[in-house]
Amino acid sequence: MTTGETSGRIEARFAALREEGRAAFVPFIMASDPDTATSLEILKGLPAAGADIIELGVMYSDPMADGPAIQAAGLRAKAGGARVSNTLNMVRTFREGDADTPIILMGYYNPIYIYGVERFLADAREAGVDGLIVVDLPPEEDTELCLPALEAGMHFIRLATPTTDDARLPAVLANTSGFVYYVAVAGITGTKSAETDSIHSAVMRLQRHTDLPVAVGFGIKTPEQAGAVAEVADAAVVGSAIVQTIADNLDGDGKATPDLVEKVLSFAAALAKGVHAARRQAAE
């Protein structure tokens, strides 16, 4: 796999965590949910709340792998001014105050395709984006974005799922970089939760096929669940539960209440504490 030179932030972050013997806490928020200013304030506050890596959602009107919480977040974000260019601006502003926390953009292919792949990769790299998770681009469509991204030094983080069997796994991992994201349940975001035992065996299966760090997401809602995942995986991703906290702190007109940012960040801090308190079980 030939790749351009990456920003190095993801590699550095996982190396540092490995030294500390702990897993990464990876919160997800939808860019511009419920409006761009509030969303930016949350984004800026996440590292201090304990975020090791941040996933920033790129709004799409038809998110076919997402459950009700993230669908609703997308609609709020659209009303709040979400556009690809605006999301890149948020990252640019974030980078003025944080040079180290990796940022992954997560979403669907069409907004990137319409923005233009080459232009998007150049602008995202310049803005300070470290990697991409694009839900609807399986390895069968690698020429669209994955290969150009790797050449541009942009990590392309692939999803592996419970339906990805051993025969298919090598194809899924072949052009993956940065880390692997294991989708813990066959389903959409924010609904079912997986048993820790099944997550553990799935992570071990992935580790037999790759040296990349393994992040786990889908269905992690509480600090306890996040902590349990952090014992067996290299990172725990929490999305819907955080996004739901935003939804729970809106006024009757759907606007942010004055303490929304604080509520979201204190929930993130509790999740981070759950992750950071967990000691990694010897996987090596």
């Binding site: 292919y109 399986p138 339906t163 298919r168």
Partner: peptide, 8 residues
């Protein structure tokens, strides 16, 4: 252009 869960 589908999620990995659906590919298999």
């Amino acid at each position: 252009y589908v999620a990995e869960t659906l590919m298999p």
